Simulated scan of single mutants.
Amino acid sequence: MSEVIYRDGSYLANNPSWHEEDSPWKARQIVRLLEANRLKPSTICEIGCGAGGILTSMAREMSPTTRFKGYEISPDAFALCASKRASNVQFSLTDLLAEDAEHFDVVLAIDVFEHVEDYFSFLRKLKPRATYKVFHIPLDMSVLWTLLKWPIVNGRNRVGHLHYFMKDTALATLRDSGYEIVDYFYTPCGIELPNLSVLDRCLKLPRKAAFSVHQDLTVRLLGGYSLLVLAK
Results as ranks from 00 to 15, higher is better:
L205D: 12
E99I: 13
L221Q: 08
L39P: 03
A27N: 09
S2Y: 13
C49Y: 05
S177Y: 04
E20F: 05
C45Y: 00
Y186R: 13
I30H: 07
L227K: 04
K208W: 01
S197D: 09
P188M: 08
W18Y: 11
R28C: 06
A86Q: 09
R28T: 07
I44Q: 06
V153K: 06
N15I: 01
Q215T: 11
E20C: 00
K26W: 02
V213R: 03
A109K: 03
A130P: 08
F104H: 13
R207S: 04
E117V: 11
L97I: 03
A130C: 10
T169N: 12
F68S: 06
V229S: 08
G48H: 05
A13F: 14
V229L: 08
L97T: 03
E102K: 04
D8T: 13
L171C: 07
S197F: 07
G52H: 10
F78H: 10
P24D: 09
G160E: 00
E102H: 02
V112T: 15
R32N: 15
K204R: 12
N14S: 12
R158W: 06
H115R: 04
G48S: 02
L171V: 09
I30Q: 02
F165C: 06
M166K: 10
R32E: 12
T94L: 13
A13E: 15
